[in-house]
Amino acid sequence: MRALAAFASGLLFGGGLALASMTDPNRVLAFLDVGGAWDPSLLFVLGSAVTVTAIAFRKVLRRDRPLLADRFLLPGATAVDGRLVTGTALFGVGWGLAGYCPGSAIATIGMSSWETWIFLPAMLLGMMVHTGASLLSAREHTPPHGTGSSELG
């Protein structure tokens, strides 16, 4: 059942990204290009998605537990630290260079674009480089302990 729910959520997510043209790097870069022919439509995409989550999350989180799991697994981190600032700044540079973010890159697998097959492996490599580096430094500096679950996605 949990797999089915994840699959249904993925279907909505991928369909929504495609409907919103988030999967089209031309549209994404036109949105980011405030110095050119600026296309603000993705601002409404983000705005309406956040409106839905803001209302729905509030209702959902009033429950004691999810429908199909024991508890809600929410990011616990609240601090604005160097990792967050550096990481999201680099993320933005990459998004502005290529026009894809992780969700849209996955969705474009279903839309047959040659660009996916360059961007996606590079993205996975970038993730592995960071994960590998933090595993190494964790092994050197601290005893094996939870690395925390501050990741959001």
Binding site: R83, A98, M127, G153
Partner: peptide, 28 residues
């Protein structure tokens, strides 16, 4: 595309999130 992919992957991992995680869910 290659540089963008590397930075998006590394940055999202270091910064604990991307457009959907921070942008849609975190803001929500």
């Amino acid at each position: 595309l290659t540089a963008g992919g590397l930075l998006v992957g590394f940055g999202a991992s270091l910064g604990s999130g991307c457009t959907s995680g921070h942008g849609v869910c975190g803001l929500g």
